[in-house]
Computed example of a mutant assay.
Amino acid sequence: MSSVDVRVGERLIAARDAVGMSQRDLEQYSGISQPTIHRIETGRREASILELSALADACGVLIADLQGNSTVADRVLCAGRTNDTGTQALAAYMIYAFGLSQRLDELGVSAAA
């Protein structure tokens, strides 16, 4: 019997909450049923890589963020003139964009001309 990493579910809840989505909203945007999302979030079911991809895309995060092995934030330094919510949101978006770029590079998707 394989063990399920309950931290994936915790990270999914945090990502979903960060964008203000309910499990039903996430179902709509990811195509994964609400009961399945609930089981993943509570650690009663492991998510496949395809499910993680759909859930991550719907929440605007990377698969690595849900798996807990994203290193992009560790390698990016963001500086702003203020420490307000807008600046923090922009920094989070930039980290996401850099991570997405890294993922596309890993998949061999070339940059658009």
Rank of each mutant, 00 (worst) to 15 (best):
T36Q: 15
S70E: 04
E27H: 05
I32V: 11
G68H: 14
L50Q: 15
S70Q: 14
S30E: 09
A47D: 12
H38N: 14
G43R: 13
L12S: 01
M21D: 09
A64W: 12
G60D: 03
A14H: 00
T71L: 10
R44N: 10
R45C: 09
H38Y: 14
A54R: 06
E51Q: 07
C59M: 02
G31S: 01
I40M: 12
A54V: 08
N69F: 03
L66Y: 13
T42S: 15
G68Q: 09
T42F: 11
E27V: 05
L55P: 13
A47I: 03
R24E: 03
V19E: 05
A15L: 02
T36W: 08
I37G: 15
R24G: 00
S22P: 02
A64Q: 12
A18G: 13
E41W: 01
A56C: 07
V61L: 03
D17E: 15
Q28K: 11
S30K: 06
D25S: 15
D25I: 03
C59Q: 11
A64V: 08
I40F: 01
G60K: 02
D17L: 10
Y29L: 11
Y29I: 00
L12D: 06
A54H: 02
L50T: 14
V19C: 04
R16Y: 04
G68W: 07
H38K: 10
A56F: 07
D25M: 08
A56P: 01
Y29M: 07
T71C: 10
A64G: 07
H38E: 13
L62F: 09
A64M: 08
N69L: 12
D57W: 13
S22W: 07
S53M: 04
C59R: 03
I37T: 14
R44K: 15
I49T: 08
Q67T: 14
D57F: 10
G60W: 00
Q28G: 10
S53F: 06
I13Q: 05
D57K: 03
R44M: 13
A58S: 07
Q28I: 04
A47M: 07
I63Q: 11
S22Y: 04
I32K: 03
S30I: 04
T71Y: 08
S70L: 11
V19Y: 03
L52Q: 12
V19T: 06
G68N: 09
Q34C: 08
L62W: 05
L66A: 13
R24V: 00
T71R: 12
G68S: 13
S70N: 13
D65R: 10
A15C: 10
I49R: 12
V61F: 08
G68I: 04
R24Y: 06
A47P: 03
M21E: 01
A64P: 06
L66E: 15
V61A: 04
D25G: 10
D65Q: 14
I37S: 03
I49C: 05
S30T: 02
R45F: 01
L55M: 04
L50N: 14
G43P: 11
P35G: 15
I63N: 13
D17N: 11
A15H: 00
Q23V: 12
Q28N: 10
I13F: 01
S33W: 06
I63A: 01
L26F: 11
M21K: 02
Q34E: 15
Q28C: 04
A15P: 02
R16I: 04
A15D: 07
L26E: 01
C59K: 08
D65F: 12
L52A: 06
R16T: 00
A15T: 03
R16E: 00
P35M: 11
R44C: 07
